[in-house]
């Protein structure tokens, strides 16, 4: 096969680029430690969330020093609890599911961004530093009122933080 030298140069550059991209992502996954959402959250009966130990009461609870778990339900067209209140300087693992259709879970303007699928539990761990407030929105079309589906995540100073559901 008759390949021009310039084309060989470009072929090598292109492969280099591809390997470079994969290496960068691997660096992010290992050295920086950015975890992907996976099947760790398990499954759930979407029509019986009120009987499920994790989701019968949507809430934030403390599970260790500066470690919290948030159980969140995304449904047409609200998030529960709302607001989701977490303490500053903490690591929060969100468990999110849906009783109806597929939703999105995006803490606005941040990297906390996930899909929520009925029957599945999305598990996502996020580090919160400064106190403040973030918007929360559904970014997957979920019905006629999709554009009204919003909530908020309030990061409270650690000494003000009170634990429990906010419903």
């Amino acid at each position: 096969m008759n390949i021009h030298n310039y084309e060989k140069i470009w072929l090598m550059a292109a492969i280099l680029l591809i390997v470079g991209f994969i290496s960068t992502v691997t660096y992010g996954a290992t050295a920086v430690g950015v975890d992907m959402i996976s099947d760790d959250g398990g499954t759930v009966n979407a029509s019986a969330l009120d009987e499920d130990p994790r989701f019968s009461e949507p809430r934030v609870e403390q599970v260790g020093e500066n470690e919290y778990e948030a159980y969140v339900i995304a449904q047409q067209f609200i998030f529960r609890p709302d607001p989701i209140t977490v303490p500053a300087n903490s690591t929060v693992t969100f468990f999110v599911t849906s009783p109806d259709v597929i939703h999105g879970f995006e803490i606005v303007g941040t990297n906390a961004n996930a899909m929520v699928v009925p029957g599945q539990v999305t598990e996502l761990t996020v580090e919160f530093n400064e106190p403040g407030e973030y918007g929360l929105l559904c970014h997957e079309y979920c019905g006629a009122g999709h554009h009204t589906m919003e909530g908020s995540v309030v990061v409270q100073p650690q000494d003000e933080f009170t634990q429990g559901g906010d419903e």
Binding site: L17, G20, F21, T24, G28, V32, G33, V34, D35, T91, I107, G109, T110, N111, A112, L124, T125, V126, E127, F128, Y134
Partner: peptide
């Protein structure tokens, strides 16, 4: 190359809320 480095290291890794 330049845009990738900018997007990955500035826009993404420099963005708020680290997912771990």
């Amino acid at each position: 190359l330049v845009m990738w480095v900018f997007m990955y290291f500035v826009e993404f890794l420099g963005n708020e809320l680290t997912v771990v």
